[in-house]
Amino acid sequence: MTTRPYDNSARREAAAATRHRIIVATTELLAAEGYAGLGVMAVARAADVSQQTIYNSIGGKSALLKACYDVTLAGDEDEVPMSQRPEFSALREAGSADEWVERYAAWSRLLSERVHPILGPLVGLGVARDAGAAEFLTTIEQERRVGSTHAMTAFHKSFGLPDGLSLEQAIDICWTLNSPELYARLVGQCGWTPEEYQSWLAGELRASFLATP
């Protein structure tokens, strides 16, 4: 008697569809109600699932926020690291340091535009008053640091750095310049256009990494 292998593809597809509904509901709640209106019960109602399903599929409030952020940042739900996506790969194809700076500024603007609706209200939130927001912001700061490290390590390998500037300092500068706080302040509060932000960022990166001391 031949035993057929168990096919659980239908179960995986159903779980993925449920997760998608939860993330969509979370995104819509954030847009409509802000972080204060986000909660497992509210998401469960909007996604038409039980609260336990949300905990099993994603987790609590901070996990919901992170899942929503990850999908929004990437632009899709594919589990492909940002460092392996075409926009980052294009940095490796830059023919000059100046071209690299322009591509990186455009990419940073794209990512900032995507996640600003989520991060804009949070970066001004007193994180000490909200453990969930603090946990989320700490996590994405660590992830941004990793991303900045990948970017500047590649830049250093291809084009070098000005005399007197260490790779660690270059990572510090990149990590600071691409911070959501700066985008929120310049675009969200000061009224800059995303195009103006991109131009400013390219200028700051150029001054930091291309200028000769």
Results as ranks from 00 to 15, higher is better:
162 P>N: 07
101 V>E: 04
173 I>F: 12
66 K>S: 13
102 E>W: 01
9 S>Y: 01
114 R>K: 11
51 Q>F: 04
46 A>R: 15
49 V>M: 03
52 Q>N: 14
56 N>Q: 15
203 G>C: 02
145 R>D: 02
51 Q>M: 12
124 G>Y: 08
175 W>R: 10
20 H>K: 10
86 P>M: 08
75 G>A: 00
9 S>L: 05
194 P>R: 01
167 L>Y: 07
188 G>A: 08
110 L>M: 13
117 P>H: 13
90 A>N: 09
179 S>V: 02
180 P>H: 08
65 L>N: 05
124 G>F: 10
51 Q>E: 14
169 Q>N: 14
23 I>W: 03
132 G>T: 12
169 Q>Y: 09
112 S>D: 02
76 D>L: 09
66 K>F: 15
6 Y>C: 10
59 G>Q: 05
61 K>L: 13
99 E>S: 09
23 I>H: 01
200 W>E: 04
95 G>D: 10
89 S>C: 12
78 D>I: 03
208 S>K: 05
69 Y>A: 04
27 T>D: 11
46 A>S: 13
34 G>S: 03
205 L>A: 07
20 H>S: 15
122 L>F: 01
78 D>C: 06
122 L>V: 06
63 A>V: 02
113 E>R: 15
151 A>R: 02
10 A>C: 07
169 Q>C: 09
154 A>N: 06
104 Y>T: 05
141 E>N: 09
166 S>E: 08
111 L>H: 10
177 L>E: 10
210 L>A: 07
203 G>S: 10
153 T>N: 00
193 T>D: 06
26 T>N: 06
211 A>H: 11
83 S>R: 11
210 L>D: 02
72 T>C: 03
128 A>V: 10
193 T>F: 06
212 T>M: 06
125 L>F: 05
84 Q>F: 11
20 H>T: 12
181 E>G: 08
86 P>C: 11
72 T>R: 08
163 D>H: 14
212 T>L: 12
133 A>F: 04
116 H>F: 14
138 T>M: 13
174 C>N: 05
205 L>F: 15
89 S>N: 08
157 K>L: 10
203 G>M: 09
91 L>D: 09
123 V>D: 07
77 E>M: 11
197 Y>T: 03
43 V>L: 04
27 T>H: 14
160 G>A: 01
202 A>P: 03
98 D>Y: 05
59 G>R: 05
